[in-house]
């Protein structure tokens, strides 16, 4: 049996550890200038960084190039800050996406991304933390109502990166789309972003009322896209001018919150696209439609 140095050697090891570290307070020793932390194995750096928040990673990203790289790797893994609501507005030449901590957050309690299309051919992407004063807000509102209708929002890389950044950083329970003119690029982009979010409530308000020149195929394509988002709860508040055909394409037999004052319904049940839309919507657990009388629809059948 090999002779054991145990007790003595163990004591010596303990003593050397304590002597070496006894004088180390919270700060590093002045002469201990070696960068041990950056030299940790990659898997340990990942393990450490995965236990942080986005705010911590912001600070780590300016420490060094290597640490910045590992901070970026941890972004998809660390907990997102939970927000109540994402709001996506598209109004006459201005695009705005806001992230609200609570449904009734004050202006300065939300994070926003604004894209201005009014004055320049090239959209300006602006990160925005709220109105500085009431006058500024009034000025913005005035522009919003008097501005001419802008072309379809060009999704530049800058805009896409900024929107993706918001979705990577914050998780939310609900997304609201306001008055959005959804072209194929926008649908593809948001479809991709929302695809992996589960238990999401999605709300569309006055979305498909902007361009009369768009035909029914366009509407159906948008509706098909909405259905494909697989929301936990889908709220659809359309313009009344649309035909019952559109409403009916989202009909399910249960979970419909009926409301009164529904325009006259026409059911093009012979159209295959109608059945396809019905089929896809069947995967949505809860569907809420505005101004629709469920009984009226049932009667029509």
């Amino acid at each position: 049996m090999a002779p054991l140095k145990t007790c003595k050697t163990a004591k010596r090891a303990r003593a050397s550890f304590e002597v070496e570290n006894g004088s180390i307070s919270k700060k590093r020793k002045q002469n201990d200038c070696e960068d041990y932390f950056s030299n940790l194995p990659d898997d340990l750096l990942r393990e450490i960084f995965n236990k942080l928040t986005h705010t911590d990673l912001d600070e780590l990203s300016i420490v060094s190039r290597k640490i910045s790289y590992f901070a970026s790797l941890a972004r998809p893994i660390v907990e997102k800050e939970t927000m109540e609501l994402f709001e996506i507005h598209y109004h006459k030449g201005k695009f705005e996406i806001s992230v609200r901590k609570t449904r009734h957050s004050q202006e300065n309690e939300k994070y926003s991304l604004r894209v201005h299309l009014m004055k320049s051919a090239n959209p300006v992407c602006e990160k925005w933390k709220g109105w500085k004063n009431e006058m500024e807000k009034a000025k913005y509102d005035a522009k919003k109502t008097t501005g001419k209708i802008a072309p379809v929002l060009p999704l530049t890389n800058d805009i896409c990166n900024s929107i993706e950044y918001l979705f990577k950083r914050f998780s939310c329970k609900q997304i609201k789309f306001f008055s959005g003119l959804m072209d194929l690029n926008i649908m593809t982009f948001f479809g991709h972003i929302i695809a992996n979010v589960i238990n999401l409530n999605i709300e569309f308000i006055s979305m498909i009322n902007v361009r009369r020149e768009y035909n029914e195929i366009y509407y159906m394509r948008v509706l098909d896209w909405i259905a494909s988002l697989k929301a936990q709860t889908l709220y659809l508040y359309f313009n009344r001018q649309l035909t019952g055909k559109i409403y009916a394409s989202f009909l399910r037999e249960d979970n419909i919150n009926s409301q009164e004052d529904f325009p006259k319904v026409q059911f093009p049940s012979e159209e295959p696209i109608f059945f396809m839309a019905m089929l896809r919507c069947a995967e949505i657990p809860t569907l809420v439609l505005d101004k629709i009388s469920f009984l009226q629809i049932i009667k029509a059948f």
């Binding site: 700060k27 960068d35 041990y36 932390f37 950056s38 911590d56 600070e59 300016i62 060094s64």
Partner: peptide, 23 residues
């Protein structure tokens, strides 16, 4: 280790862990 980063700025982290500033 991750707790030592909480509430610290980048330069503070650099100083405490002896990481050279490359930026």
């Amino acid at each position: 280790i991750s707790n030592t980063f909480k509430g610290k700025t980048g330069p503070q982290i650099r100083e405490e862990w002896g990481v050279p500033n490359e930026f």
